[in-house]
Design a protein around this nucleic acid. Structure first.
Lengths: 199, 199
DNA sequence: CTTTATACGGAACAGCGTTCCGTTTAGCAA
DNA sequence: TTGCTAAACGGAACGCTGTTCCGTATAAAG
């Protein structure tokens, strides 16, 4: 009963304000640098982009994997949050469609990262669990709404849809840039088939 | 009618003798260093162990992958050659058994290496083909001899046996050191089942 | 033996991870 | 507001590595 503060969103409580700011700046910078140069990018690049010294990076993220994990979690959170926001803003099926696109953007941006992790490094083991725990409920919610509206047929496991979306955006490297968008369109149309047909 | 020399075994002809020597010393040193420190080991370590300067390493193997590929090929060659030698020295089934053990040693020693290559690097693409082309005929020969002698049953595809051997020695990290040997014994015994039974 | 193309060795340069410590500053209390 | 102190910052410095470059050494040919 000492720390009556739970105001911040993600990172630890009871930190000095400048530390908070720097952590956030670092996560933001790391996101950009990882996307541009991969997860092996020089620490100095990230520090510079965040406007801090390298010492500060090591203070908050002693291991490179700590930074990677933090960025990944943040992105997963953002993706899951987007589901709620989209659900509030668009009709069921459009929300689902938009979220799938959002999700594939996430997957594409993180593919190099995910590949770099795979080598059974225990430091990244919790990530997959986190990913499932956050994203599956998100898509399940969107799916349920669309089903309830009679626009999408029932019986599609949320996990399957997630996997399908991942697969569909995989060969997006060497094809037209809107390949993913078109494939998702097909997927949504496929889900519509067999819906209750109420209009 | 200028170069009546085809005496050397593997590397290119028409090289200066000291270059030949250094190349061989480098391959030998790289084999040892890779085994001890992995394929990311410092070039300097390899140069030192081979008793040459780093410049010499880069002269003969401009890319790190060139060295890795050369070492790998050499090991595959040695493994394939061992099949012939064993066939000449031991009775059919014992030759097969001994070769499988030899093969698993090769696989274990190269596992870290193989993992490091996997990331679809085109520089290593030919390796898998080379591996298949050299090793499958080797085991096929041994297998045929054992089958012809009536000690092993026919109908086992050589590639399957190769795969099985690879699988069997996989969990050899955290178990007793003779795990692989025992598993191979079981495999050989399994092959014996259904043999012609001529004695 | 002379010559010359080839190969050698290792100093030198550049980039990166990581540590360390003098300096700065947020938060608090008087 | 003014001190005070623990927390945090920044970046120089160190060590290790990849890679290049060029003066030196030498194998091979005539």
């Amino acid at each position: 009963m000492k720390k009556p503060q739970a105001q911040e969103k993600s990172v630890k409580p009871s930190k000095r304000a400048d530390a908070q700011r720097n952590i956030e700046a670092l996560l933001k910078a790391a996101l950009a640098v990882f996307a541009k140069s991969g997860v092996d990018a020089p620490i100095r690049d990230i520090a510079e982009k965040a406007g801090v010294g390298v010492g500060t990076v090591y203070r908050h993220f002693p291991q490179r994997s700590d930074l990677i994990v933090a960025v990944f979690r943040q992105e997963v959170d953002a993706c899951a949050d987007a589901a709620v926001a989209l659900a509030a803003k668009y009709p069921p099926t459009e929300a689902l469609s938009r979220w799938l696109l959002r999700f594939t953007e996430f997957v594409e941006a993180k593919r190099g990262l995910a590949a770099a992790l795979h080598p059974g490094d225990p430091a990244y083991e919790p990530l997959r669990a986190y990913y499932d725990a956050k994203l599956r409920p998100a898509i399940a919610m969107l799916l349920n709404r669309a089903v309830a509206a009679g626009e999408i047929r029932a019986g599609v496991p949320p996990g399957d849809l997630l996997s399908a979306a991942v697969s569909l955006c995989r060969p997006a490297y060497d094809v037209a840039p809107d390949h993913t968008r078109r494939m998702l369109g097909l997927l949504i149309d496929g889900l519509r088939y067999g819906a209750v047909r109420e209009r």
